[in-house]
């Protein structure tokens, strides 16, 4: 419980530091005027991915004991498209809506209310969605398993792609100014 609260505090702190409690700043990502969302997300993914990889190599962290989100291809494709559409309309995602609300922003509180209503209604009207929700299940499938290549190779590939996209993002923002 203390761990959960402490991790949450750090999570909220870094989101606010980056400016991700501000819907207009997040929306800038989708109009390509401010690429902060992309930069924060991918530097976080690369940091945690490299940390998990090296800590498990050193025997400090047991990666097998970490829960890997399970793959359901069609529900995650459709859910992702809907989620993205909702994101650009709301300007905040679930985590950042909490930060926005905590920093006094009314739109953050409304995104939270909307999110809760959406989850509640989906739960109430779930029966017709149940079969789709369980479809195309792949278990805890990862890219090293899918591509049959060593974990480190995928890690290296993600780092290479992220670094080249960071460079492209910087060039884009300089040109836009």
């Amino acid at each position: 419980m203390i761990t959960a609260i402490a991790i949450g505090i750090a999570f909220g702190w870094f989101l606010e530091r980056a400016g991700l409690g501000n819907a207009r700043k997040l929306a800038g990502q989708f109009y390509l005027t401010d690429l902060t969302v992309f930069k924060v997300m991918f530097s976080a993914i690369v940091t945690a991915m490299l940390g998990a990889f090296w800590l498990s190599r050193l025997g400090v962290l047991d990666l097998a004991a970490v829960y890997v989100p399970e793959t359901y291809l069609l529900p995650q494709l459709a859910g992702g498209l809907l989620f993205g559409a909702g994101f650009v309309v709301a300007g905040l995602c679930p985590g950042t809506s909490c930060v926005a609300a905590a920093t006094g922003r009314g739109d953050g509180a409304l995104v939270m209310l909307g999110m809760f209503a959406g989850v509640l209604v989906t739960g109430l009207a779930f029966a017709p969605l149940a079969a789709f929700y369980e479809s195309s299940a792949q278990g805890s499938l990862t890219f090293p398993q899918l591509l049959r290549v060593p974990y480190g190779v995928v890690v290296f590939g993600v780092v290479a792609i992220a670094l080249s996209m960071f460079a492209a993002a910087e060039r884009w923002e300089r040109r836009a100014q």
Binding site: G86, A90, C93, G114
Partner: peptide
């Protein structure tokens, strides 16, 4: 937007 995200997040888990 929040409500649509709620639907999407439930579907995608």
């Amino acid at each position: 937007g929040g409500a649509v995200m709620g639907l999407g997040a439930v579907l995608a888990r």
